[in-house]
């Protein structure tokens, strides 16, 4: 896939395949095109060049019903993007009702099931503003889950959250990954990647620099760029010894 915004080339020929039940983790520095890549996949932001196939069907071709395609590609956003005027339950059921044409009762029942899966059923009647960030994000995940999509895209789902709220969201993501959900996750949560990623892709300046299993990345990453980036993440989330190492390196 290729994508540019005016002069800025954001994606320079990124390509990958995703098998059923796979969990793909995409990471890399900010501005590397991760979010753009996700928005290309569900055609919110169609690529300039390149093709996307969903179950063998080219969704980038002209004349494709994109609304129908998008019901099969769920998305979870960095800033949750819950509908502010709707209670949690209605945030989840609105897609079922308005897009899938479920009756009010059916939609409510399915929405409650989805909220149950993210452990938010008891908050069903709360408005988004009455929920913590972690709770809002779990509702966001339930909203995507309830549509029973083929794939769910996660756009930095925990990076807008306070540290103590990240765990509850990651737990839910681990649960649904283990339940066999096909996922593409843009995240810097390396613990999550280690636990469930089938493949990790390191993106930098719109191109794939390196790809492999979590084991590959954490044991013997090839490129210097990746090593440095992983080290920086460790400094942020890891131990002080490593921070000292890095400082010493800089001094040399």
């Amino acid at each position: 896939m290729w994508k540019s915004y005016e002069d800025l080339q954001v994606l320079k020929g990124v390509s990958f395949e995703l098998a059923e039940k796979e969990v793909k983790v995409i990471f890399g520095p900010s501005g590397s095109g991760k979010s753009t890549l996700l928005r290309c996949i569900n055609m919110l932001n169609p690529p300039d060049k390149g093709e996307i196939f969903l179950h063998g069907k080219n969704i980038t071709a002209s004349g494709v019903n994109l609304n129908e395609i998008r019901t099969r590609i769920g998305m979870v956003f960095q800033h949750f993007n819950l509908f502010a005027h709707l209670k949690a339950i209605d945030n989840v059921s609105i897609g079922l009702r308005r897009v899938k044409g479920f009756s009010k009762e059916e939609a409510r029942e399915k929405a409650l099931e989805a909220l149950e899966r993210v452990k938010m059923a008891e908050w069903a009647d709360h408005y988004p503003a009455q929920l913590s960030g972690g709770q809002q994000q779990r509702v966001g995940i339930a909203r995507a889950l309830s549509m029973e999509p083929d794939i769910i895209l996660f756009d930095e789902p925990t990076s807008a959250l306070d540290p103590e709220l990240i765990g509850e969201v990651l737990q839910v993501m681990l649960d649904i990954a283990k339940a066999g959900t096909t996922m593409v996750v843009v995240t810097h949560e390396m613990g999550f990647a280690k636990a469930v990623a089938t493949e990790m892709i390191f993106l930098s300046e719109g191109a794939v620099i390196e790809r492999g299993t979590p084991k590959h990345f954490f044991m013997k990453p090839e490129s210097e760029r990746v090593r440095k980036f992983l080290k920086q993440l460790e400094v942020l989330y890891g131990t002080h010894e490593q921070m000292i190492d890095l400082l010493e390196e800089e001094e040399k």
Partner: peptide, 12 residues
Amino acid sequence: GQIEAARALGMS
């Protein structure tokens, strides 16, 4: 962001 979320759900 909410408009984007609605479109991502498949709403026209």
